[in-house]
C-alpha cells in the first residue's frame, strides 16, 4: 500500500481564488528548512499568505478576499423565485 502510494506522481492543482492542492509523494520544508510532514495524502498549500497554519491552507483566503482572477460582474447564483 505505502509502496504504491509513494509511486504516485506529484500533481499540484491551483484552485481558483484558493489554495494549491497537492497530491503525491514529495518532501516539504518550512521557512527554516525543517521538514514538514503532511498529515494527509492530499493537502492544500496556502496561496494567499493569510493562513495561520502555513504552509497549509486554513480557509483564510475567503476572509481576506483573495482573488486569482477578477470577480465576475454578474452573480454566480440566483434563486428560482427571483424575477
Amino acid at each position: 500500500m505505502s509502496a504504491e502510494a509513494s509511486a504516485q506522481p506529484v500533481s499540484i492543482t491551483a484552485c481558483p481564488d484558493g489554495p494549491l492542492l497537492v497530491r503525491g509523494d514529495l518532501a516539504l520544508f518550512d521557512d527554516d528548512g525543517r521538514p514538514v510532514q503532511p498529515t494527509r495524502r492530499t493537502f492544500a498549500l496556502c496561496r494567499c499568505g493569510a493562513s495561520a497554519i502555513r504552509p497549509f491552507c486554513d480557509g483564510s483566503h475567503k476572509l481576506v478576499g483573495f482573488r486569482t482572477s477578477p470577480p465576475s460582474r454578474s452573480p454566480a447564483v440566483t434563486f428560482d423565485d427571483e424575477p
Binding site: 452573480p75 454566480a76 447564483v77 440566483t78 434563486f79 423565485d81
Partner: peptide
C-alpha cells in the same frame, strides 16, 4: 429552502451560495 440556480458552473455557484 429557496432553490438556487447556477448562472455559470456549479462550483462557482456553491462558493457564492456559501459566501452569501
Amino acid at each position: 429552502v429557496r432553490q438556487p440556480v447556477a448562472t455559470r458552473e456549479v462550483p462557482e455557484a456553491l462558493f457564492a451560495l456559501v459566501e452569501a
